[in-house]
Design a protein around this nucleic acid. Sequence first.
RNA 1: GGGCCCAUAGCUCAGUCUGGUAGAGCAGUAGCCUUUUAAGCUAUUGGUCGCAGGUUCGAAUCCUGCUGGGCUCACCA
Length: 558
Amino acid sequence: MGLDIGPVPVRTIHDRRSTINLPTLSLRTTLNSYKVPAVRGGVCPVAEDTTGSEIRRQRIEKLDKLEELDGQRYPNDFKSTWTAAEAHEKGGDLDTAGLKAAGIRLSLAGRVMAVNSFGKSTFLRIRDRTGILQAYVKLNVVGEDAYQRLKLTDVGDVVGVEGTLFRTRTDELTLAAETYRVLTKGLRPLPEKWHGLKDVEQRQRMRYVDLIVNDGSREVFRTRTRIIAHIRRFLDERGFLEVETPMMHRVLGGANARPFVTHHNTLDLDLYLRIAPELYLKRLVVGGFDRVYEINRNFRNEGLSTRHNPEFTMLEFYWGYATYSDLMDLTEEMLRGLVTDLGDGTSVEYKGETLDFGSPFRRLAVCDALREYCDASEAVFNDPDQAATFALDNEVPGEEADRIRAKHTGTDDESRRNASLELAMAVFENRVEEHLIQPTFVTGFPLAVSPLARRSDHDPTLVDRYELYVSGAEVANAFSELNDPADQEDRFRRQVEAKAVGDQEAMEYDEDYIRALEYGMPPAAGEGIGIDRLTMILTGSESIRDVILFPLFRPEKK
RNA sequence: GGGCCCAUAGCUCAGUCUGGUAGAGCAGUAGCCUUUUAAGCUAUUGGUCGCAGGUUCGAAUCCUGCUGGGCUCACCA
């Protein structure tokens, strides 16, 4: 059974503020020195949390002592001259004598990741956004006060060090401190230095901690950004214009999915969070931006899984005077370039398979796939009764099969074939997708499941559409666009009818979009690529939550 | 929503099968230590064993329910 929850209202911040309870602040009453700033609007975001209270108490005491030494608790006047990476660049080629001669001075700020103390001298590993540089602090060099600050330092604090570069006995480039300051005292201990933070839930709920301690996690999100930057560059170079279209829609459309609903107070207007930007981007093609793209969020009110987050990022782009066949070539070129740019070579290891992006991608029609993987007979594609039996044999729920048949009431050959193909499509989703490991363009989609795609010139029951599958998951969906307003009107009507027989994911009739098409949309082809899923494959992540910085979770219970 | 699995110190984990005073390493605290890098040595703090019931003389351990999470199925991209 599917999730049978209706549209979920999204409350505004204003609404939530008026209903939230003021949490108690345990520390405020037990620790005089824990100074809490006033919070606007009387809503304090600090919830009661006694986690590691003993350790926190000790660290707050250290913070007090630092204030006694320095006159303030959280100084913000420290400037680092170089990053850790720049220090390694400047000093990396010099040996002990060379460094002494060069006398390279710098100041560096970052988080303390490890401390090795010898009483009157101490090594610190300091990490900034670019990497790690070791610092060496000696009592007789920095003086009593600075060394006292050092003794009040814990792993996890943010510090600032100024000094010159030298090499240790083990030949490690190190900053010999002349001054030492604690910039931000960490009140909570970092996870264990060797095993790190492994608990999946904690890593995702407290991403800030995950990013501090897990190198792999930082790398995944850097790679995600590189992927998006690469795609932008690729499209920009080819004359595509990046735009932003509305996230709040009055008419549901552009995809088949269940929406979130929100509300505009002044206009007293219910709005959907968009499930796809498609219909707006194609309005822009009408407007003359015939190479246009958007990389942004979509929202779908459906279940959560390792492949689904309620908000996810899509690239959608539209290319005037091109066809879905041109798009296949462009997509291959884009992904091949991306894989080459990110790693070495044209293949990617994912879930124990070597995915080959170097060779031309396989192209496979839906019907051929069903013949190959499910032994479908010809009758399955033309006779709704045979198709229904085929569907039930392949674990399509009877309820779904009935609903599909109810949408196709005509008795002519074309209607019968439409019904058969839509049933066959359900089997494809159940039985074929999992086999499509290597990048594969699946073509020959039924018109019945493609309300926005251009009808095939060779078969009126098919459309010029493909989906790209990689590692058994849909990564892209593309088609030659339907720009015949009369045909589009007819397709919208069918969506409305489908909604009437219980298809909760069907689109609504979009009058304004029809009007736009009546002004004339140039022939065009468009594609959507799931950035999260692409990132999963290119970073070796098995869960979508590993490539989304802050995935949706149930609220933490107190 | 169904199935399987998990929840013990700030973190990583033993202990559960076979019920008998709550354990280790790291982190922390107090010392020693001026070239370490999972530094070392000595001592030591820290737990309502996810929550609520039940069985029992006695429950981290057995039973039931609940909460949160993971995988998976369904829905979907």
